[in-house]
Amino acid sequence: MAEGHNKTGTSHKWEMVIDLDRCTGCEACVVACHAENNIRISGEEEAAQGRAINWIRIERYWEGEYPNVQARFMPVLCQHCDDAPCEPVCPVYASYHTPEGLNAQVYNRCIGVRYCGNNCPYTARQFNWFDPTWDEPLAEQLNPDVTVRQNGIMEKCTFCVQRIRQGKEQAEKEGRPVRDGDIVPACVQSCPTSALVFGDRRDPESRVSQLARQDRAFHLLEALGTHPAVTYLKRIT
């Protein structure tokens, strides 16, 4: 894997910021992720069983009693934790931490033990319970940069690692460092309110770094000490 560098010459650390004040719960990110990452179509029956695969989902909670009910929602995806509890429990190294801070899932190594799925406190991991099928000609819209997973394999958000690699290769081809905003995962790209921001945390000037330094910043389930790479900004309106 090409080791890209940012302006300061160190390797990257990819992180994301989610501004809950801006999120409207429209689920454009969910749809974009499906399209980009060849996520299988689960169908009604499987969705009813709880097996609909979503690498990013909008979690919705109701607060209060009628008529003072309020919906709270937040996007939850793989947090790419620095101390990911899902990584050491995989017996075959199908899940490991890349030097750039991504929690990588190696599809052709996974044998489907599913310990990682249990150990993720965010329930961010998904499993392929069946082989995927697309009626023709839907197969023609599959992204060739992303492996189509067969049954028996765990999968989850990869921070669109194919776009990260493409961005780094493009920068290397052009002989320049990766700029902030070059690499945009599908969810970030499609968010109408720019609630999702992605970038290199090692670059102190990147938008991600600036946003993550705000007072409103918090992490999900921080007390567990997983050190996630996704920072949420508290909703105040």
Binding site: P88, V89, C90, V92, I111, G152, I153
Partner: peptide, 26 residues
């Protein structure tokens, strides 16, 4: 219980051309 039971032998520690062993931390 295994998802891809035909790949169960990935659990066996043997030297292979992929230079990967099972993870004994698990």
């Amino acid at each position: 219980h295994l998802g891809r039971v035909w790949r169960w032998y990935y659990l066996i520690p043997y030297p292979n051309q992929r230079e990967i062993w099972p993870d004994f931390r698990s």
